[in-house]
């Protein structure tokens, strides 16, 4: 016996200009039903601006063991940060 439905992750955009945030997942046979289910399950009490559903197996994620080599470059290159540079006095909007 099979339930044979796909798992979809649900993302909601709550504010104008804001990011889509993960809310949980729903089961559905296809994307259209997943969208409807997501709205019924996660947005009963308010209207999100937008809903995204993505098949769970279409998401590629990092894993905790990636912590070292995968993320290291993230915070050791100070020249990516504006505070690394000085601006001559009196020059604005740089």
């Amino acid at each position: 016996m099979t339930d044979a439905s796909e798992l979809y992750e649900v993302f909601l955009q709550l504010k104008q200009g804001g990011p889509h945030e993960h809310a949980g997942n729903v089961h559905a046979p296809d994307a259209e039903m997943a969208l409807q289910n997501a709205r019924d399950v996660y947005a009963r009490r308010f209207r999100p601006l937008s809903i995204w559903v993505v098949r769970s197996d279409h998401i590629t994620s990092s894993s905790p063991s990636d912590d070292g080599p995968f993320f290291d470059p993230g915070d050791d290159k100070p020249y990516r940060h504006p505070s690394f540079y000085t601006t001559p006095r009196g020059v604005r909007d740089v």
């Binding site: 729903v26 089961h27 559905a28 409807q36 289910n37 019924d40 399950v41």
Partner: peptide
């Protein structure tokens, strides 16, 4: 027939 449908029909 599906939990999701219980919710949808109730809606």
């Amino acid at each position: 027939p599906l939990l999701e449908e219980d919710i949808a029909l109730a809606n």
